[in-house]
Design a protein around this nucleic acid. Structure first.
Length: 315
DNA sequence: CGGGTTTGACCTGCGC
DNA sequence: GCGCAGGTCAAACCCG
């Protein structure tokens, strides 16, 4: 993983809430119980950190994604707020980002500059400008496929990219885990599958989806956890530039387009990751033992831009 | 027939 | 430079 692939912890809704949340500190309140174990923590407790009625755990994934129901309540309950995009960029230069992206990529090299949220299923994002690179790459590919054998053109194109030092950037990513038998959870948007790849060390393939809306570059990857097959790991990349088709006629239609699913009550919070997950840095940190608290002491300083992936309990 | 899925090939970046 | 793994493309195929 290169420095290009820096990634930041960010809240799934950072862009949507850029006006709500500043960049000052991590706003996300974890359960104060340091021994918090998402797998033993009762569902009701998770659902009711502030005494919210747990019947909402039945809310649909879609409705929750679009922020109806008690999102506001929940965000308040967990003191959720979001990052400004500026903040995201700022963090891109931090030394800890390398591993974050590795985590997002489910690669396995979290040894130095560990993610700030060891053992947490965190949301990852990176703000690399992948567009330029992608387009040039595509151009090269197009040239190739059109039978253009002009090596100079190819070379110059490549040189141009490298010469300019334009680092490949990716859209902010947010990953979250969902307990579900269904891989592709309904999130209100329409997706077109464009690829599937076998994942190393996992019997489950990873599927690649792209938003079907024109000019919307949002992508998502869906894979199932090897260690916990009931858990689906969904990674969103990019931000929708349109409203969700599913909400156009609903009350949520008035909401701004969301880049990522909103936090739902029935999402478990970070630190919910299985230990020693084969996909590694998504969840684990080598310096943190399972016995250790999975919540670092000073989140506000350690997670200035972080949010997590959430474990969604389908009941 | 249009839109989505499948799947093999290809590209890219990284580590050794 | 090479091999590996992730990511993407696009032709072929499927389905309503």
């Amino acid at each position: 993983m290169s420095d290009e692939d820096k990634i930041n912890y960010s809240h799934p809704y950072d862009r949507d809430h850029r006006n709500v949340m500043g960049s000052e500190g991590f706003p996300f309140s974890f359960p104060t119980d340091l021994n918090f174990d998402p797998f033993t923590y009762s569902h009701h407790q998770l659902q009711n950190p502030t005494g919210l009625d747990h019947h909402h755990s039945q809310m649909s994934f879609t409705s929750f994604l679009h922020g109806d129901a008690e999102y506001n309540t929940l965000s308040a309950a967990f003191d959720l707020s979001c990052l400004s995009s500026e903040a995201v960029h700022a963090v891109n230069n931090s030394s800890s980002n390398k591993n974050l992206l590795e985590a997002a990529g489910t690669t396995n090299s979290a040894s130095e500059n560990p993610p700030a949220t060891p053992n947490s299923s965190v949301s990852f994002s990176s703000s690399e400008a992948v567009i330029e690179e992608d387009s040039s790459s595509k151009n090269r590919r197009d040239l190739q496929r059109k039978g253009c054998e002009d090596g100079d053109v190819m070379k110059s194109t490549k040189l141009k990219v490298k010469k300019k030092g334009e680092k490949k950037q990716r859209e902010p990513r947010v990953a979250f885990m969902t307990k579900s038998d269904v891989d592709n959870l309904e999130d209100g948007y329409r997706w077109r599958k464009y690829g599937q790849k076998a994942v190393k060390n996992s019997p489950f393939p990873r599927s690649y989806y792209r938003c079907t809306s024109q000019k919307c570059n949002v992508k998502k990857r869906i894979e199932r956890s090897f260690q916990d097959p009931s858990t689906v790991i969904t990674t969103y990349e990019g931000q929708h530039n349109h409203h969700s088709p599913a909400t156009l006629r609903g009350s949520a239609a008035m909401l701004p387009p969301l880049p990522f699913p909103r936090l739902a009550q029935n999402f478990l919070f970070p630190n919910t990751c299985p230990q020693n997950h084969p996909n590694s840095s998504y969840y684990s940190h080598p310096n943190i033992s399972p016995e250790q608290p999975q919540i670092l002491p000073d989140q506000s300083s350690l997670f200035p831009n972080m949010v997590s992936s959430f474990l969604h309990k389908h009941i």
